[in-house]
Design a protein around this nucleic acid. Structure first.
Lengths: 211, 211
DNA sequence: CCCAAAATACCCCTTTTGGGTTATTGAATA
DNA sequence: TATTCAATAACCCAAAAGGGGTATTTTGGG
């Protein structure tokens, strides 16, 4: 095994694209495409045998999707670097892919030079992403305080998200338990929920509080 | 206003670094440093008057920190692109910065050429990050199923995270409410919590379930 | 100075939750 | 084959949470 060589595998159902990618990679010094597949079903056992450094994975595949494929691959090879390469850039798919363990996410309009750079970056421990994907990812961290909630209500909600009981919140905020109840009733009405766990789930999922 | 020009402001307390950055930016075609400050206190009112395209923001500043400064700036100028440029790369600070609204995060070992590229990328609607920061960010999405939990317990926990009551979970999983209670007791013991809201908070914060 | 909103507090009562204990069944595995 | 573990289910009881209503005080603008 040459230390300066990055071994790449491809999973892509379009024959033309798959072949082009393989040619690009094999035609570049320092990169070698060791295998390519048209579906995850054949890719998973083969890659588990002959492990690449970096995988280029399409999402829209016949049979098992790229997301499911990644989950399966990661079970056997948790440290494998998988780069998603797809046309999809909807919120839902991007985050499913990252949750499934993708180390980067490229859209298919990525130029050959950028793609090679991205493969290298993934290999070096980075997380290459296309411009608009990176912004989506970074934006997803922003806290969006619910404008309907008052300051005090937001404080109470923050306590709820720490798993505090009415009594504990009362002690923490130096108010009576009844007042905590009052605030929580108002929070429930505004968030349109009716229990602590629903409120906590909504607050954390929609980043209404600074956790 | 020249359309091909990117107007940059700098907040950085080290005089040498601040000056060097300004010289780098002003010495490059297409970039102009319109202002630079040694602290957020002076930067915020000035930037609100004379708004740059991209801000380079240090974190460790005398007085108001870069994080607090970003929160304040974003209140007045929610669409301002702020790039963090700092030596800090601990988990906590990176995510506080992103939650506060940073559009990118660079470590101070970034080469001048890369820095200019990053400023341009931020201006173009991207989210430039140093290699290790990008990997941290992407890794933070990975779901880490709690190995202690059984399959059924994970299903119940998933339902809890949707805000479901014991009764609703029982109906959803076609088991008795008593069995739900049993599973939840076991979940609490394993997660070391003692209420639904604590369990939901822990599950969502540590990404134990596919939400 | 008055009004509205926010924050505070208390009452009633029902439902839900949580801690303790015990038990049966089926599947996996040592 | 014996044993462990997951999943199922039930009972008791106390504490917490949630839904309803009402009321006082504080605070910030017009």
């Amino acid at each position: 095994m040459d230390n300066d060589m990055i071994y790449v595998s491809i999973v892509e159902d379009d024959d033309d694209i798959r072949e082009s990618l393989a040619i690009l990679i094999n035609g570049t010094t320092g990169y070698e495409c060791i295998s390519h597949f048209r579906d995850c079903e054949s890719a998973i056992p083969a890659m588990t045998e002959d492990v690449p450094d970096v995988v280029l994975m399409d999402i829209g595949l016949p049979g098992m999707s790229g997301i499911e494929g990644m989950r399966a691959l990661k079970q056997n090879l948790p440290d494998l670097d998988i780069l998603v390469l797809t046309v999809h850039c909807d919120y839902k798919i991007v985050f499913e892919a990252l949750c499934a363990g993708a180390c980067g996410y490229l859209t298919k309009d990525t130029k050959p030079a950028k793609l090679l750079e991205a493969i290298n970056e993934a290999f070096e421990g980075g997380a290459p992403m296309s411009t608009q994907i990176a912004r989506m990812v970074v934006d997803s961290f922003k806290t969006k305080p619910h404008t309907e909630l008052t300051l005090r209500e937001t404080e109470v909600l923050t306590q709820l998200c720490k798993g505090m009981s009415y009594r504990m919140i009362a002690e923490a905020l130096f108010i009576s338990e009844e007042t905590v109840r009052r605030h929580i009733k108002n929070i429930y009405k505004k968030l349109e929920v009716s229990s602590k766990s629903e409120a906590v789930a909504k607050a954390l999922k929609e980043k209404l509080v600074h956790s």
